[in-house]
């Protein structure tokens, strides 16, 4: 039996077509809030910060007097700033590297089927989701000079005695290691998610073919899977670097830049000078100093991704 389709009555097309029916216009309307958000809440403050950095603006005297690049000249002549810059690079790249290594191993473990894997996958996100203020309190107790859980365990196991117990936040090198470890701990769940997304997107037949050809675990991972997921990992790394380079929370909550300025990073220094001490123009200059550095890193990584894109 054949259905007889009712003839479509040709409607007279409206002279003025409703403008929202045009996909181009509608798309723009939907995207507009995001653009407005970026312009008002990111672009506006950014331009304001740029002007602060070239002005004499302080909380004591909120004047907009233009001073050119004097603020930048003054901060680069300060040895404390150069030390903070060096610390920032170390803090950023070491914590990202550690986070990536942990993330890679975590992802490989979570790919294997085992009872409760879904629960573990959910729990592993916790370090990323827990507010850093809360997590820092726990870490502070772990690294405390008097009540360190780590030291207590090492002493209880007879590995060290009280006199040899490391002063985690009191030794400049150990303190830097601590803030790096805490930041890597925050970052590694994100790295796991990135690696899991990347590894699961690699076609199984490619891996099977490599296995048939005799490639072992290491060769499969580092000569086949890693090169294929590198662009995805690089995107995750860009996020990690940008967030860590501009971060002050771990340092502020754990060490306050100490001991002897050993963990002072640019974000922390900008906050202390600009907000706590009220010298907004120099604080803005310190913060904006990160911009060209991050710009170069991000552009270099994006170019790398483009070249490696498969």
């Amino acid at each position: 039996m054949v259905d007889i389709v009712e003839p479509i009555v040709a409607r007279r097309s409206p002279r003025y077509r409703f403008w929202l029916d045009r996909s181009g216009v509608l798309g723009a309307v939907f995207v507009a809030p995001a653009i407005l958000y970026v312009l008002l809440l990111v672009g506006g403050p950014f331009l304001l910060a740029v002007y602060y950095s070239i002005s004499a603006y302080t909380i004591y005297d909120p004047s907009w007097q233009f001073v050119g690049l004097a603020n930048f000249r003054q901060i680069v002549q300060n040895p404390a700033f150069l030390e903070a810059l060096e610390n920032t690079f170390l803090f950023t790249f070491a914590s990202q590297l550690l986070g990536l290594i942990l993330g890679k191993f975590g992802a490989l473990l979570l790919l294997r089927p085992f009872p409760g894997r879904k629960l573990v996958r959910a729990l592993i996100i916790l370090p990323w989701a827990v507010p850093i203020a809360l997590a820092s309190v726990a870490w502070q107790w772990m690294f405390d000079s008097l009540y360190s859980v780590i030291n207590w365990t090492l002493i209880a196991l007879g590995i060290i005695d009280r006199a040899q117990a490391p002063n985690w936040l009191g030794n400049p090198h150990l303190a830097m290691l601590c803030v790096i470890v805490v930041n890597a701990w925050r970052f590694f769940p994100f790295a796991i998610v990135i690696f899991l997304a990347g590894i699961t997107s690699v076609p199984q037949d490619v891996i099977d073919a490599a296995t048939v050809d005799g490639a072992g675990f290491w060769r499969r991972n580092y000569q086949i899977i890693m090169p294929m997921i590198l662009p995805i990992v690089a995107i995750g790394l860009i996020f990690g670097i940008v967030f860590t380079f501009t971060d002050l929370s771990v340092v502020y909550l754990l060490t306050n830049g100490g001991p002897v300025g050993a963990t002072s990073v640019l974000g922390f220094q900008g906050f202390q000078v600009g907000i706590v001490s009220g010298d907004v123009s120099h604080g803005a200059a310190i913060s904006l100093f990160m911009l060209p550095v991050l710009f170069i890193v991000v552009v270099a990584m994006l170019r790398f991704i483009r070249r490696r894109d498969i």
């Binding site: 302080t58 004591y60 404390a80 306050n256 830049g257 100490g258 001991p259 002897v260 300025g261 202390q272 000078v273 706590v276 001490s277 009220g278 010298d279």
Partner: peptide
């Protein structure tokens, strides 16, 4: 005044003592 506050907030006197104490 604001300058003494910034010296305070940047922990300069604490670090002056600590740098010598630790032998840095």
């Amino acid at each position: 005044w604001p300058a003494t506050d910034e010296v305070y907030n940047n922990f300069i006197i604490c670090d002056m003592m600590a740098k010598a104490a630790t032998g840095a």
